[in-house]
């Protein structure tokens, strides 16, 4: 078995190209602000990683059931009962900003 350590981002026949626009879109979905220069950097890096991942397409997985749990157990159902609560101050204790029992965020509704 051979594992390639070359970064496919540098090859001409790259299968997947993640361009700056895609990076910007994904960053927006992930709610991470990134600069123009970072878009460029991440585009190169993500293209490299995704092309390395692309080797999975060699494997025929038709008819294979996706694995959802490694352990063959049925999730048990717990009783529907309240086991904690009345810990408002604990819940808020690490909030960057809290007031009168609420988390405070920038104004959402005009």
């Amino acid at each position: 078995m051979t594992i390639t350590t070359t970064n496919p981002e540098r090859s001409d026949d790259a299968l997947v190209t993640i361009d700056k626009e895609t990076v910007a879109k994904v960053a927006k979905l992930a709610r991470i602000k990134i600069t123009e220069a970072e878009q460029e950097k991440f585009a190169g890096e993500l293209t490299g990683i995704m092309n390395w991942i692309e080797q999975l397409s060699e494997v025929d997985t038709d008819g294979v059931e996706p694995l959802t749990s490694v352990v063959d157990v049925t999730l048990h159902q717990r009783k529907d009962e309240i086991t904690d609560g009345d810990i408002r101050d604990k819940v808020l204790s690490n909030a960057p900003e809290a007031q009168e029992g609420f988390f405070v965020v920038p104004k959402v509704v005009e």
């Binding site: 895609t22 993500l46 990683i49």
Partner: peptide, 17 residues
Amino acid sequence: AAGFGDEVKRRIMIGTY
């Protein structure tokens, strides 16, 4: 943007993609 480092950002973006 300020709180996560580059490797974490890369992985979040791959995951989102």
